[in-house]
Design a protein around this nucleic acid. Structure first.
Length: 478
RNA sequence: GGCCUGUUGGAGAAGUGGCUUAACUCACUGCCCUCUCAAGGCAGCAUUCACGGGUCCGAAUCCCGUACAGGCUACCA
């Protein structure tokens, strides 16, 4: 029987869910679901210095919000594979590290940070081609170890790399890749504080959790041979790897958490009124294309068509305009009920609408359904109408100064006063009346009124403006 | 420095030796619609695939070199 597909997303809780993380979770999820497998959410919290509170919850919940729902996680453990946080299974790593030491393929290293730095510098000055750990501690006698311990040194455990060994693997994204073990130094698998390093912990976890496929960022490509060495020593079957490209910012640089040009975190997009389905779709097409040029995918369609071999191997730039377009597409295709539920919290941000009843709000919200690209935009558009603009621009002032404008405004105001019901038909007729009464039409007719009402020369249909403001407020502005 | 990846219009990209005078989508530009903005409709937007060589009747596609970008080279993940 085929092994059940199991994939994972394993963030370190050092920050909230960001675009890159969400994307790699997304592709893993798609792969799992395509092959009826499990998607596991696991926490790699071995960098105890950098962990921040709340990061794990945010990572998990933002993922769920996106529709990337883990089958297993710290909140939903499968007893067979738990625990899902690395810091909760330190004894397990210790046991496996000891096993490697007993096998003679790992050894205690008592070198200090300073000594290591010195060694590196020394190698560099000699002009060595590729520097790596000089194996100073490889064959320490028990006496020497004792001496170091007395000095208060705490050892790390390093893995001994094989001599001149080719690590070959077939990358799901890049095809055949190979590395030579001679280029890689003996690396630390257990830190002196008894916590495993990333490269060691992933291997143990992936094996114990029976992970079959690993889709991860390209930054891990060079880590793969190290991990393969561990698999080889244990005699474990490694998962299939696929290395996806990173996402770069508009300057072509890797997205860094400190980059403020672009929003990094899912929660920020959520707050600005992006739909999870839109982000899902956008992320899906960032570095992946379908065979048939399809641009809009439901989750089910994405699952069905996903193929890691079609993942791009060159970096993708994050294009905010494209996200905006995708989001606007999804907003337009919401049904009116869904749309209203989505947009209501944003409308409520505008004070003017706080007291209005739902029926009214719903009607108004619909005016903007074709207009907005995210939730925040309706706030801006509504404010533009509702908040009276005090200082007019030059162009606007010039229009109001035209002789015809005062006539239009005068006549329009009178007719509006006499209007008993504001509806689309009535307002249209109103303009017709003003037109025949004054002989003024087109721009000269509409613009003065528009400017009087909102202070700007653009915006939604005039009837809607008057409707939103109400007769009283409209009259007072004219 | 070493090792490993990558490089097709402003962006995502299709393309796997002849059907490519390089698809599709976003952006951009113009036109139509229209009081205006948006939406929508239509049209335009790479004689060329980082550069230089080579193989071939034929190359964006294969080979070599160069340049540039990124990753790893941590007791970070």
């Amino acid at each position: 029987m085929e092994k059940k597909v199991r994939v994972r997303y394993a963030p370190s809780p050092t920050g909230y869910l960001h675009i890159g993380g969400a994307r790699s979770a997304l592709f893993n999820y798609l792969y799992a679901k395509k092959y009826n497998g499990d998607f596991v959410f696991r926490i790699e919290d071995t960098d105890i210095e950098r962990n921040i509170p709340g990061a794990e919850e945010s990572q998990l919940h933002d993922l769920i919000w996106l529709g990337i729902i883990p089958d297993e996680s710290p909140e939903k453990p499968n007893p067979k594979y738990a625990p899902y946080r690395q810091m909760e299974k330190l004894d397990i790593y210790k046991k496996y590290a000891q096993k490697l030491v007993d096998m003679g393929v790992a050894y205690e290293c008592y070198c200090t940070e300073d000594e290591l730095a010195e060694m590196k510098e020394e190698q560099l000055s000699r002009g060595v081609k590729s520097f790596k750990y000089n194996r100073h501690c490889l064959n320490l006698t028990p006496e020497e170890k004792e001496k170091y311990k007395k000095e208060g040194r705490k050892p790390t455990i390093r893995l001994k790399m094989m001599e001149n060994h080719e690590f070959k693997f077939h990358d799901l994204v890049r095809g055949d890749v190979s590395f030579n073990s001679n280029d890689i130094g003996d690396f630390v698998i257990m830190k002196s504080n008894g916590i495993p390093t990333y490269n060691f912990a992933v291997v143990v976890d992936d094996h114990l959790m029976e992970i079959t496929h690993v889709l991860r960022g390209e930054e891990h490509l060079s880590n793969t041979p190290k991990q393969l060495q561990i698999y080889e020593y244990f005699g474990w079957e490694p998962p299939q790897f696929g290395h996806m490209t990173i996402i770069v910012n508009p300057n072509g640089k890797k997205l860094s958490k400190r980059d403020h040009n672009i929003l990094q975190f899912m929660s920020q997009y959520k707050e600005l009124g992006y739909l999870p389905e839109a982000i899902f779709n956008f992320l899906f097409l960032l570095g992946w294309t379908s065979e048939n040029n399809q641009e809009i995918f439901t989750k089910e369609e994405a699952i069905k068509s996903f193929d890691p071999a079609r993942l791009s191997s060159s970096p993708s730039m994050f294009d905010n305009k494209r996200l905006l377009w995708t989001n606007s597409y999804y907003i337009k295709h919401l049904n009116d009920e869904e749309y209203f539920d989505f947009i209501l919290p944003f409308m409520k941000k505008v004070e003017f609408f706080a007291k209005k009843n739902e029926e009214e709000l719903k009607k108004i919200s619909l005016i903007f359904k074709q207009e907005i690209r995210n939730g925040q935009e309706i706030v801006d558009l509504l404010n533009e109408i509702v908040v009276k603009k005090e200082n007019l621009g030059e162009e606007e002032t010039a229009i109001l100064d035209k002789p015809s404008s005062s006539i239009v405004i005068e006549v329009f105001k009178k007719s509006l006063q006499n209007l008993d019901e504001i509806n689309e038909m009535n307002v249209k007729n109103l303009f017709k009346q003003v037109q025949s009464a004054t002989g003024i039409k087109g721009k000269d007719l509409y613009m003065p009124i528009r400017i009087k009402l909102t202070g700007v020369m653009h915006g939604i249909e005039m009837f809607n403006i008057i409707d939103i403001l109400g007769k009283e407020e409209s009259l007072s502005r004219l």
